[in-house]
Design a protein around this nucleic acid. Structure first.
Lengths: 304, 304
DNA sequence: GTGAAAGCGCTAACAA
DNA sequence: TTGTTAGCGCTTTCAC
C-alpha cells in the first residue's frame, strides 16, 4: 500500500520524535559544513532526522532555537556554542533534553562533549616552526573565550615558553571568520619590527586570507613568511602554495557526537556521568612553511 | 510560566508542522553550503524549521528522504535534484506536498523553481576569453544530464559557434565535484595538441583544482593558461591567482526558493501555475585570466 | 488470537 | 465572556 504512518501522531504517543537538533554558527564556514555532513550522515544512517539551526554567532538566535527545540520536542541537541551566553543550554538542560557539546565546552554544565585537541595541535604547529628556525612567530586567532580558541592560544604560548621565548602580546592579532579578516590581520602583523617570519592563523580560511595578504604586500610564502592554518579544509591542499595546517578530524567529530547523542537518548538512564572525547589533531606539512633563510633577516630589518 | 506548546500535538491537530525539508547533495561543497544558509536564514526568519537531508548524489537516499518527508509531514520540500531518478519527486508530488526545485529543473514535472542563468553565464565567460584572443578553449564540467550542467555546456558551445569556432569534443573534459577532479581533468586537457590556452571549469572548486594542476604541470596561470570558474565561492577571491569566475547569487537562490515555498504553502490554492525564477549570472574578472601572448604559442606548439 | 477503546496535548467548535 | 468537549492518528491496553 501507499501508507506511511504520521510521525506527529507517533510522536505525541511516544513522546519522542526521532529528530535531533543541530545548533551551529554558520554552514558557510567550510569547517562547520563538514561537521554538518558528519552529523547528518550518522543521523540518517540510524534512522533519525536532523533539524538544522544556524545561530550566526548571535545569542538571541540561539535562545530562539532552544525554544524551538523544546516545542518541537527534539530527542536531543548537538550544540556548537557560539557566544558566551549559555542560557539556551540552561533551558535545554532544565528540560532534561540530552545535549552533546561539539568542538568547545560549555562552561558551568556537565555535558557530554566531543572536542579536538586544540592545545596539542597548536603546540605541534609551533614546535614545527621553531624547528625550522623561526623565533618571531605570530598568532592570528579570533578573540573569544570559547574553549577551542583559548586552547589554541594556550598551546601557542606553551610551545614558545618551552623554547625559552618570552611572551610578546604584539604578536597575537585578533582574526575572525573569513578570508578578508586573514588578509587584514596579517598586514597588521607585517608592520611589526622585527617582523615575524611565521604565523599560525586559525582557522584555515583565515590562514588562506593571510597568505593572500602577504602576497599582496609583496612577500613570498614561505620565502618571506611561513603560514600555518588550523582545521585542514579541502581547499587547503589545493591552493598554491598549499597550506601547512593542523588537521582536525571534523567529519569524525560530527559522527562521534551524533553517535554519542543517539546512544544517550536510547539509553534513557537516570544516572550517568558525562562522557568527554578529545580527538587528536595532527600537523600536515605542505608548502606554506619553510626554514628561516637569509631572505628573512635581510627583509625583516631595514625597509619598514 | 515555563510553558511551551508541544508541536507534535499542534501538528496533529492542524495537519501542518511548520517545518520544511531541504534535500540537497552535500554540504561539503561550498556552493551548497551557501545555499543552505540562504534557505535557513529565510526559514528561520519566518518562524519555520528546517529538516536537512543530504543525498550524497544517491538516488536511494533521495527515495528514503522522500518517505521521511511524507511521514514527518513537512509542509513543503526544497529540492536540489542530484540524480536522473525523479521518483522521489513523484512520490512527494502525488502526496500534494509543495515542492520548489532549486538550481536545476526536474524533467517531467510542472514545479516552481529557482534557477540561475547558467546558459548566459557560461556564454559570458567564453565571450570574455574570446575577447582576450583565446581560440582553443576547454571546458571541464561534470558529466550529467541535470539542467544546470547542460545549460553550461550549451552556453559554451553557443558562444564558440557565434565566433565561428567549430565544435571540438576533445576540448570537453568530464570533471567532478572536488579539487582533485579539477587537477586530474586539466592534465587531460594539457595533453591535447594544440594545447588549449584557456578553460572554463565548473564549479569553482574544480577550477581551483585545475589551477593547481596547471601549476603542478609547470605552467603559469594566467601566463600559459587562463582559468575561469563557476559559482564564485568565497575562497575564489582569496587564492592566488584569484579566480575569474561566473558569479551566481547562491545565497539569494536559497532565500528566494524558501520564500517561494513558504508563500505557496500559505496560499493553499487549488489552482496555481508553477512559477519559474531565473537569477542572473555575471562574470567576475580577477587574476586567473589574461590575454593570449607569445608565451602561449611558443609553448603550445613544440615541446609536448 | 482478534478487536475495541482510551489517551497522548492541542485547538476549534460549541454550550452555558 | 468562559468552560467543556471532541477528535487529529497513532499505539497500548484490556476485553473478548
Amino acid at each position: 500500500l501507499d501508507y506511511a504512518p504520521l510521525e506527529a501522531a507517533r510522536s505525541l504517543r511516544h513522546k519522542r520524535t526521532r529528530t535531533i537538533g543541530l545548533i551551529l554558527p554558520d554552514t558557510t564556514n567550510p569547517s562547520y559544513s563538514i561537521l554538518v555532513k558528519g552529523v547528518e550522515d550518522t543521523v540518517f544512517a540510524q534512522g533519525w532526522s536532523l533539524l538544522l539551526c544556524l545561530s550566526g554567532y548571535e545569542a538571541t538566535r540561539e535562545q530562539a532555537y532552544a525554544e524551538i527545540m523544546i516545542s518541537k520536542q527534539v530527542d536531543g541537541v548537538l550544540y556548537v556554542l557560539s557566544t558566551t551566553d549559555t542560557s539556551p543550554v540552561a533551558r535545554l538542560y532544565k528540560r532534561q533534553i540530552p545535549i552533546v557539546a561539539i568542538d568547545r565546552e560549555v562552561p558551568g554544565f556537565k555535558l557530554d562533549c566531543v572536542l579536538a585537541d586544540n592545545f596539542n595541535g597548536s603546540a605541534a604547529a609551533i614546535h614545527y616552526l621553531l624547528k625550522l628556525g623561526h623565533r618571531h612567530i605570530g598568532l592570528i586567532v579570533r578573540y573569544s573565550s570559547l574553549s577551542n580558541i583559548t586552547e589554541r592560544i594556550r598551546g601557542y604560548e606553551w610551545a614558545l615558553s618551552q623554547a625559552g621565548i618570552e611572551k610578546n602580546p604584539a604578536l597575537v592579532i585578533a582574526g575572525g571568520f573569513g578570508f578578508e579578516e586573514g588578509q587584514r590581520a596579517i598586514k597588521e602583523l607585517l608592520r611589526l619590527d622585527p617582523r615575524p617570519t611565521a604565523v599560525l592563523a586559525s582557522p584555515d580560511v583565515v590562514a588562506i586570507g593571510a597568505i593572500r595578504g602577504a602576497i599582496d604586500a609583496g612577500l613570498q610564502v614561505p620565502g618571506h613568511i611561513s603560514v600555518v592554518g588550523f582545521d585542514d579544509i579541502p581547499v587547503s591542499s589545493s591552493i598554491s602554495p598549499s597550506l601547512t595546517t593542523v588537521a582536525l578530524p571534523i567529519w569524525e567529530m560530527g559522527r562521534m557526537a551524533a553517535e554519542m547523542l543517539l546512544k544517550r537518548i536510547q539509553a534513557q538512564e537516570e544516572e550517568w556521568s558525562p562522557e568527554r572525547i578529545v580527538l587528536p589533531a595532527h600537523l600536515v606539512i605542505r608548502e606554506s612553511t619553510g626554514a628561516v633563510t637569509e631572505a628573512h633577516s635581510l627583509l625583516a630589518g631595514g625597509d619598514e
